[in-house]
């Protein structure tokens, strides 16, 4: 396998890695807490996409029984389990964002700012 195939053949993984990196960057470098939260959401989304993309099989279709497609051959259908898992993960993610926004509102009420540096200054 040459390098080009290696890169092109795993394009979905590269995309996910880039997303993960953007998410981590947002969480660590950005000073605005909302932007941190956005970074976190991107990070979570990347993990979810990883599951979804890994469930794909070539020449397979959605896992709904079709009359003209044999159920004996699993290669005909893509793997439904990661999708089901990710539904749960998405719910968890939504809940996390909800809690996070609640906390952000509380922080803003207490300090009237969402900038990390200003907050640390105010908390001294």
């Amino acid at each position: 396998m040459n390098l080009f195939d290696f890169i092109a053949g795993h394009y979905d993984y590269w995309f996910i890695i880039i997303l993960l990196a953007i998410g981590l960057y947002g969480m660590t470098v950005k000073k605005n807490l909302v932007k941190k939260l956005i970074g976190m959401t991107i990070f979570q989304a990347a993990v979810i996409l990883f599951y979804i993309s890994s469930a794909i099989k070539a020449d397979a279709t959605v896992p709904i029984i079709m009359e003209n497609l044999s159920v004996d051959n699993p290669a005909n259908y893509i793997n439904p389990l990661p999708h089901a898992l990710m539904l749960t993960a998405i719910v968890v993610g939504v809940a996390t964002v909800g809690v996070a926004f609640t906390l952000l509102i509380l922080i803003y009420k207490n300090y009237k700012t969402l900038d990390e540096n200003e907050l640390l200054e105010l908390m001294k």
């Binding site: 990070f43 990883f50 809690v99 906390l103 922080i107 207490n110 300090y111 907050l119 908390m123």
Partner: peptide, 20 residues
């Protein structure tokens, strides 16, 4: 709230790593 928010960010990274 700020302490909890920091925990939330770090904790979510941890959980996402685990999920990955």
């Amino acid at each position: 709230p700020f302490a909890a928010f920091k925990y939330l960010i770090i904790g979510t990274i941890g959980a996402s790593f685990y999920l990955l």
